[in-house]
């Protein structure tokens, strides 16, 4: 019975963690899908959004969940500006290796992290909201339960939102004109130009949207984590794993990829050792690259079209 409890609790935390991971990966999958560039400043964009949420909470007492409505538009603008004034010029020029853009994003990330250190100091910060430790316990509802499971409010909320954002994104990309144009750009930008789509605008838009989503992720994330200027790097890596696992540009793939990754990592932590969890993360990543190059999205497509 104890073993069952361990297993179930691990599963639950894995799913919740996966939801959170998916949220961070959603923005990246959009950016990578449309522009085919590796954005190594992704985590730093989240860091910026988290600082916005932090200051709104500390100075004005605005709840981090409400800060989404300020941080997301702000990051949208930042994303569009980065795309327009930094990335587009680099894409335009001829260069031997297209990976120039990657180094550009490294530079952007360096500047953002360093400016955060200069302006906000290297202090660790957090938003201690009142409901931070609200948790639901199985035994509270079912007193005779032989096992104890718990779900924390904050984690549940972020899980819920990542599902909602995925649905909203899916709706936007597949049902609206702009969304369709973005998808066309991502599939074949030359053809998209021929169809009269303003490809540059779509790129700016998708970078902005990607930044806005990661901003939302940051706002949902800050109540249950903490914040410091150098926080970005590790989450950039996680976002990559999810993007590849889920399939470039696929929202549904990203959320499934996130859940798979979360459960896989949690299981590794429990049954092999927490020190090995990152190995699990990157092995699954390499395996996905090699054996499932289209990601989970390709599995979904195969089913849908009956191939």
């Amino acid at each position: 019975m104890v073993q069952l409890e361990v297993f179930l609790q691990t599963l639950v935390s894995g799913l919740l963690l996966g939801g959170l991971y998916a949220l961070i990966g959603l923005g990246m999958t959009l950016i990578m899908g449309v522009m085919k560039i590796i954005n190594l400043a992704h985590g730093e964009l989240m860091m910026v959004a988290m600082y916005i949420a932090y200051w709104l909470f500390t100075l004005l007492g605005i709840d981090p969940y409400l800060a989404v409505f300020i941080a997301s538009p702000a990051l949208f603008i930042l994303g569009v500006l980065i795309q327009k004034y930094l990335i587009t010029p680099v894409i335009k020029v001829e260069s031997i290796l297209p990976e120039n853009q990657v180094i550009l994003t490294v530079g952007i990330g360096m500047v953002l992290a360093s400016l955060a250190t200069v302006f906000f100091k290297s202090d660790y910060r957090s938003t201690p909201v009142d409901y931070a430790s609200v948790t639901w316990y199985l035994t509270d509802y079912w007193a005779n339960s032989p096992i104890e499971l718990s779900i924390s409010l904050l984690w549940a909320v972020s899980f819920f939102f990542s599902i909602m954002i995925t649905i909203a994104m899916w709706f936007f990309l597949s049902r609206t004109d702009i969304g369709k144009s973005i998808r066309a750009t991502s599939q074949d930008s030359d053809a998209a130009i021929l169809m009269g789509i303003n490809v540059n605008r779509m790129r700016s838009l998708s970078f902005g949207l990607g930044a806005a989503i990661v901003a939302a992720a940051g706002c949902l994330f800050i109540p249950l984590y903490y914040l410091y200027p150098a926080l970005g790097g590790q989450f950039t890596l996680i976002a990559f794993v999810i993007t590849i696992l889920g399939g470039l540009g696929s929202n549904v793939g990203a959320i499934i990829g996130g859940l798979v990754l979360g459960v896989f990592e949690s299981m590794t932590s429990t049954y092999i050792g927490m020190g090995w969890a990152p190995v699990g993360r990157f092995s699954i990543f390499i395996a996905a690259l090699i054996f499932l190059p289209g990601g989970i999205a390709s599995l979904l497509h195969r089913r849908r079209f009956g191939k």
Binding site: M32, K36, I37, I38, P98, E99, V102, L237, F240, V241, I244, G273, G275, W276, P278, V279, F282, S283, F285, I286, L289, I290, P293
Partner: peptide
């Protein structure tokens, strides 16, 4: 053997991951 069959950004990401795998393995 594992990564060279991949191309472009996929190759880049696979090498990135293999670097991390070695780091964590060395730690453990």
């Amino acid at each position: 053997l594992a990564v060279l069959r991949l191309r472009g950004p996929f190759f880049a990401l696979a090498t990135l991951a293999s670097g991390e795998v070695f780091r964590v393995t060395a730690e453990n």
